[in-house]
């Protein structure tokens, strides 16, 4: 007993001092240096490249991307894709998340797992399934025929309907999960209290449920919008070149036509959109009271 104590004291003293001096740097630096070299610098180079072409400094890429109606239309397509996917997901996701949060405990775990599972399935696999679904002899046409909505199979693949149907399918869980995680913590007694104080169901929803679940809604919206605005695989497979987005232009600029200046400018525009979404959503995710104090 005493020998062990003596030994540890003798050893621990100098060792501790040594590590207290050097450990923080040893622990932090490898990660940070790696991320600066492999991530921050490449992104900065990309930004610099967008201002440069074969002849040196140039804003030609931006003049093209932000001045040519064709490319403005493409930026608008991307924003529209993000917007419609987000709205569609919200309209389905909010009520679904509400039902999920009110489910009995054991069922809730199962339902939660079922919503979560599709997120872990590869996007390519899901989009492949969607494409098969929407073939002329696919299940969707079969369903519509048998219900009697249509009398002959419709062409669904490569239409905007297919695009949005697929996009919402792929990104819906990203809307449901954040809303659910906030709704789960919502005390049901609050709505009961509002009702007992004379508020109608609509008022209760508008004045109690909706404001309290707003952080989840904001998180879901920013997540779905920022991912769907930049989506590449799903639009590529479901609608292809009929609906050009910024992602398609960027990929083509680098992989096919080798117009790096155009690609880099488009990439920076997308980067700005992505960063704007993040900052806007962190602003709105803060409780309104705190926001007011700050501003």
């Amino acid at each position: 007993m005493t020998t062990i104590e003596m030994r540890t004291q003798a050893e621990a003293q100098p060792r501790r001092r040594f590590f207290q001096l050097d450990t923080p740097a040893i622990m932090v630096l490898p990660g940070i240096v790696f991320m600066v070299v492999a991530f921050a610098i490449p992104v900065l180079i990309l930004v610099a490249d967008s201002f440069r072409d074969a002849g040196g400094f140039s804003i030609g890429g931006y003049r093209k991307v932000l001045g040519d109606p064709y490319y403005i239309g493409i930026i608008w397509n991307s924003l529209q894709l993000g917007l419609i996917t987000t709205i569609g997901s919200l309209l389905i996701g909010y009520p679904a998340a509400f039902a999920l949060s009110r489910a009995p405990a054991r069922l809730q775990v199962l339902l939660f797992a079922l919503i979560f599972l599709p997120l872990t399935v590869s996007i390519i696999v899901k989009t492949f399934g969607l494409a098969i679904m929407m073939r002329r002899d696919g299940i969707l046409n079969w369903l519509l025929l048998n219900v009697g909505f249509i009398d002959r199979p419709m062409r669904l693949v490569f239409t905007e309907f297919a695009l949005y149907f697929g996009m919402i399918n792929v990104f819906l869980p990203l809307m449901i999960l954040p809303i659910y995680s906030v709704m789960r913590q919502l005390d049901p007694r609050l709505t009961d209290a509002a009702a007992s104080l004379g508020a109608g169901p609509v008022t209760t929803f508008r004045r109690v449920t909706l404001p309290l679940t707003m952080p989840g809604v904001v998180a879901g919206i920013s997540l779905v919008f920022s991912i769907s605005v930049a989506a590449y695989v799903t639009p590529g497979l479901l609608i292809g070149d009929r609906f050009m987005t910024m992602s398609q232009v960027m990929a083509k600029a680098y992989l096919n036509i080798r117009d790096f200046n155009l690609g880099a400018s488009m990439a920076v525009v997308m980067l700005v959109i992505a960063v704007t979404i993040v900052f806007t959503s962190t602003y709105f995710a803060e409780p309104a009271s705190r926001r007011g104090r700050k501003g």
Binding site: L100, L111, L114, I115, V125, G129, P173, V202
Partner: peptide, 29 residues
Amino acid sequence: MIPRLSFALCWVMLSLALLFLFTPIVIVV
């Protein structure tokens, strides 16, 4: 009446969402 109805509607939405999410996966299999 309205709360009950909207609650039922939420459940319908959740069921449809699950059906919607799983159809492509089941089809691939």
